[in-house]
Amino acid sequence: MTPLLQVSHLVKEFRRGGWLRSGGTVRAVDDISFDVRPGETFGLVGESGCGKTTTGRCILRLIEPTSGQVIFKGTDLAALNAGDLRRARRDLQIVFQDPYSSLNPRMRAGAIVEEPLIIHRIGTREERKARVAELFGLVGLDPAQISKFPHEFSGGQRQRIGLARALALNPSLIIADEPVSALDVSVQAQVVNLLQDLQARLGLTYLFIAHDLRLVRQVCDRVAVMYRGRIVESAPANELFTNPAHAYTQTLLSAVPRVDPADRTERIPFAHEAYQPMALREVAPDHFAAI
């Protein structure tokens, strides 16, 4: 199957240090490659600073990658000029973690959802209004709330507004960067279910960036684990969680607190100092590990 998104040898370097001294560069994303297949949910997991969010932003070129290719539907996004990139982004949207800071507090909910349609000059005013009402229905918001401001909504509802905005242009890929981690546990499940319903209805593909391993196991088809800017392991979700091959993946899984005492396992420490980057190799069908 041709991948929808093909990331190859992506690198992002940031300059270290302040304006007084230059301290060289740090590789936030260090030569990573992965494919996302049409219709699947691909999980990118790791702890803070591992480079998962930077990867998501480099794909959209919200941050300019240092080098590498991002092939989306046959076009290298990393090589596009500004105009072509803007057109390509119609098909590739992002949902952010924080529903409190990612919505403009001075805009009404309806205007927030309508904005991408205006920017891309889609439809007449009437058609746009109808589309906004449709999108509100799609994400489970009452269209009567179109003229409310973001602060009048709960966190879960705000995340639905962000999702409606992302869906406005009928994208095929959505990058969801920690889409539920700012929400209460009882509300997380609603938003996760909505994401899955929308995927089934609209044939969406998700790049799901998260730190919550329990959630990733629940929603993802395939998962890549990132550590210090590199992918250390990738596999179908079930395979990764039942047969983790890399020591870091094993550490990560063993650290998750379990509600059921029967699920508890011994904690496996990880020797961060002794870590040496290695190339990925196939350890089982579709299961790659840097060991």
Binding site: S186, V187, V192, N193, R214, V219
Partner: peptide, 25 residues
Amino acid sequence: RGLLACLPGSADGRRLTAIAGTVPS
């Protein structure tokens, strides 16, 4: 009961068992 049921991994399949509505402020 609802809180435990909506944790990932507590239901079979992909859907989670959600509690409807929102936490009152």
